[in-house]
Design a protein around this nucleic acid. Sequence first.
DNA 1: ATCTTTACCTGACTGC
DNA 2: TGCAGTCAGGTAAAGA
Length: 269
Amino acid sequence: MPELPEVETVVRSIRPHLHKKQFNNLIIFWDKTLSGFSQSDAANWLREKSIKQVCRRGKYIILELTTGFITIHLRMTGKLIFNPENKDAPNHLKVRFSFSDGSILDYTDIRKFGRIELVDTLNHLESKLGREPEKCTVSYLSQRFSSRKRGIKSTLLDQSIIAGLGNIYTDEILWKSKIHPETPSKSLSLDEISLVIDNMNATLIDAIQHMGTSFLTFSFENDKRGQYGEQLNIFGRADQPCSVCSSTIQKIRVAQRGTYFCPECQKKH
DNA sequence: ATCTTTACCTGACTGC
DNA sequence: TGCAGTCAGGTAAAGA
């Protein structure tokens, strides 16, 4: 389940291989992955273009081309594999890009939720995304929280406010900040917002250094797995003791997601 | 305008 | 062993 640190890990793993690569062709194996383009239209759009830069915005991987962009969202089970060992189609192959030097970039996706788009500008993407976590200030978040009474977990997951957080890291951040996930967003104090920002950035930086969390299915570069799972304090630890107060960690459902919290450390407002 | 619910998918796991 | 049922979660779209 890729969130910001996992997507950043993928970007760093493929970036050195893709620099200046020129597209030759692409083959679509599942239409919905790349909607809006037929196979031949997509191939024509790509032909002669080459990759200038590989970067990340929220949970999106962005390939900046000589003209236009390819945006890729892995959702839950999407994977990008450069130069697969087996040049035959790997399991769950959905899109195969080939380059003029013969190398290959495969997109596989077990659950078919991921999406790839070919776009001329990033305007549409930018219009739906909030700030990167590292650019969130107390004044920005307090303004965005002020009109919302829904729970803080649901708000932190809202990509139009903060781009990049998902289910695992929101639980970790709220536990470190000692805030109950169902606390109304507008009731957070400025000190609490400041604490959330500090814990958010520290957690994400640490997770990137560990190459993300492979809780269920995440991997990169032919099944390398992230090491941050061992650092998780609260996520996935139902019925285990909280490392701070030894109370039993509980699992509830918040915003349709499995949500872990410590009933002693994280009291409701 | 804000918030909640549903649809999209397959594989891993649970219980009978 | 087999099989039905449940769960996992990011986002768009529909519904409240």
